[in-house]
Measured scan of single mutants.
Amino acid sequence: TKVFYNGTYVEFNNPEKAKKYAEKVAKKVGGTFTEKNGQFHVE
């Protein structure tokens, strides 16, 4: 499961961990995250 952010991504074996990371990054940058095709995108 990949989490895309700012033109790069971090890959996780565990979708649950990926979601938590996406939430954390989104919170940090004051943005939101969306799930597309089983991957997370932070905006």
Rank of each mutant, 00 (worst) to 15 (best):
T34V: 14
Y5G: 02
K27V: 09
A18Q: 00
K36A: 09
T34G: 06
F33P: 05
Q39D: 15
P15W: 15
E23P: 00
K36R: 12
E11F: 08
N6H: 12
V25C: 15
Y5V: 09
A18N: 02
K28C: 15
A26R: 02
K27I: 10
T34N: 08
E43K: 10
N37E: 11
Q39Y: 09
G7H: 07
F4Q: 04
F33V: 15
T1A: 09
K20Q: 14
T8N: 11
V3I: 04
K24L: 14
E35L: 05
T32Y: 14
G7P: 00
G31K: 04
E35I: 07
V42L: 04
N13K: 13
A18K: 02
E35A: 03
G31T: 07
T34I: 14
E16Y: 06
G31N: 03
N6P: 01
F33I: 15
E16T: 11
V3Q: 01
T1P: 07
T1N: 09
N6G: 11
Y5N: 03
F4C: 12
V10P: 00
K27S: 10
V10K: 12
F33K: 03
V3S: 01
E11C: 15
Y5H: 09
G7E: 06
H41P: 01
K20F: 07
K28Y: 10
V29K: 05
F4V: 06
K20T: 08
K17G: 10
K24P: 02
N13W: 10
P15Q: 11
K17T: 14
F4S: 04
V25Q: 08
E16W: 05
N14E: 10
K24D: 13
K27T: 09
G31Q: 04
K17W: 12
E16F: 06
E43L: 13
F33A: 10
K17Y: 12
E16N: 09
N37S: 07
E11P: 04
Y5Q: 03
V29W: 08
K19V: 05
A22R: 00
K27Q: 12
N13L: 12
K19P: 03
K36Y: 11
G30Y: 05
T32H: 12
N13T: 13
Y21G: 04
K17M: 14
F40K: 01
E11T: 11
V25T: 07
K24W: 14
K2G: 08
Y9H: 07
T1W: 14
Y21R: 02
G30L: 06
K24G: 11
A26E: 02
V10W: 13
A18D: 02
G38V: 01
T8M: 12
T32G: 07
V29G: 05
F40G: 00
T32S: 11
E35T: 05
E16G: 09
K20M: 11
V3C: 05
Y5M: 07
F40D: 01
N6L: 10
E35M: 06
G31W: 01
E35R: 02
G38D: 05
Y21P: 03
E35D: 06
F12H: 02
G30R: 08
N13I: 11
E43S: 13
N6F: 09
E16V: 10
E43Q: 12
V29P: 01
G38S: 05
Y21C: 12
K27F: 06
G31D: 02
E11N: 08
Y9D: 04
K20S: 11
E23I: 08
P15F: 15
F33L: 14
N37G: 10
K19R: 14
F12R: 00
E16I: 11
K27N: 10
N37I: 04
N6E: 11
N14A: 07
Y9A: 08
A22P: 03
F33T: 08
K20Y: 09
K2A: 06
V10E: 06
F12M: 03
E43C: 15
V10H: 08
A18S: 01
Q39M: 10
F4M: 05
T34Q: 09
K2E: 02
K36D: 08
G30K: 09
A26Y: 00
Y5F: 14
T34W: 12
V10Y: 10
G30Q: 07
G31Y: 02
V25Y: 06
K17P: 06
V3L: 02
G31M: 07
A18V: 01
V25W: 11
E11K: 09
G7C: 14
E16M: 10
F4T: 03
E35C: 14
K24T: 13
Y21T: 03
P15S: 11
N6Q: 11
T8F: 14
H41I: 14
A22Y: 03
E23V: 06
Y21F: 14
K2R: 11
E35Q: 07
V29I: 14
E43A: 10
T8I: 11
N14L: 06
K2S: 04
K2D: 02
H41F: 15
Q39E: 13
T32V: 12
K20H: 11
G7I: 00
Y9R: 00
P15E: 09
K19N: 04
G30P: 00
Y21I: 05
V42K: 01
Y21E: 05
V10M: 10
A26G: 03
K27E: 11
G31P: 02
E16R: 09
F12V: 01
K24A: 15
V25F: 11
A26S: 08
K17V: 13
E11I: 12
N13P: 14
V3F: 00
E23H: 07
N13A: 14
T1R: 05
G38F: 04
P15T: 10
V10T: 09
E35Y: 09
T34A: 08
N13C: 15
Y21K: 03
Y5D: 03
N13Y: 10
V42G: 01
K28V: 11
F40H: 01
N6K: 11
T1G: 03
N6V: 04
K24E: 15
P15A: 12
V10I: 12
F12G: 01
F40P: 01
K19Q: 09
T34M: 10
K27H: 10
T8C: 15
T32I: 12
T32N: 09
V25A: 06
P15H: 14
K19M: 08
K24V: 12
E11Y: 09
T34D: 06
Y9W: 13
Y5T: 03
K17D: 15
